[in-house]
Amino acid sequence: MKFKTLIFTTWLVLGSASHAELLWSPKADIWDKKLSPTEHEHNNGHTMQHGRNREKSFYLLGADQARVNFIAPDLSSHPIKEQPDNKFILPDTGMDNYHALIAGQVKENTIESTLRYVYMRGKPSGVSPNKLIKNPKLTLEIIPDPMVREHWRYYSQNKHAFIINYKQQPLKDSWVVMQTSNGTTLDGKTDNNGRVVFTIPDDFKNIKAGRRANQPAEFIVRTTHIDNNTTYRSNFTAPYNVNPSHWQSNSGGILALSLGFISGLVIMRRHNKKQISSKHSARKSS
């Protein structure tokens, strides 16, 4: 069993590495070297704090006549401007919330697809992100279960689940690989509901204190399914951040809370004593 796992995982990892894998990336060379501080983008494809109105763009790696689609939360499709070097500038749909960035291509008997959710700013869409995320978009689709909410990010050390759907049905006993741009590879097998859970690796090197001091890395979740001599390859990409537990201490928090609690008791004890003594003096004077 373990031997089979090893072979399949190696095939999923090396199979993708042996040819250029179709995938969305915030930078052309992110899977080769670290993001540059000026061009990085984080929080699931949207710059959360600074430059939120800046134009967003992604590179489609491994593309060879791929078809691209950009879907808004209300499921409307929007054309994307293609720049040289497979760079795509995302259009402003005017809608807030997650948008789906999809690409697909056919090579001989292989159908490749890649999916990424990008948070765009705009007016409230008025629809739940479920409408987009759970809506079938690909034949073989990796569905984050759930996608991180607004104000949230994927963090290392945290568990996240993904559902693999093939032709809108959960694909059970299917091997899935998670690979990070920091060099970690994990594998897992889907359960009867097509669900697989990964703990995002804590594989950042030279961690500095503070989220802003650390650039996010990328992870890719990929799977392959063969049906009727056709190979379906699909992946899902997203950024992930260093877990803040590296510079935040729960025991320190409990200590400060305890000090506050004790201080409150002391303050109230003094207050009550004062009240009693002032009542006494009031009685005496009367």
Partner: peptide, 9 residues
């Protein structure tokens, strides 16, 4: 955290 403890007591 101190304020939270203070508020509780």
């Amino acid at each position: 955290t101190f304020l939270f403890g203070l508020m509780m007591s």
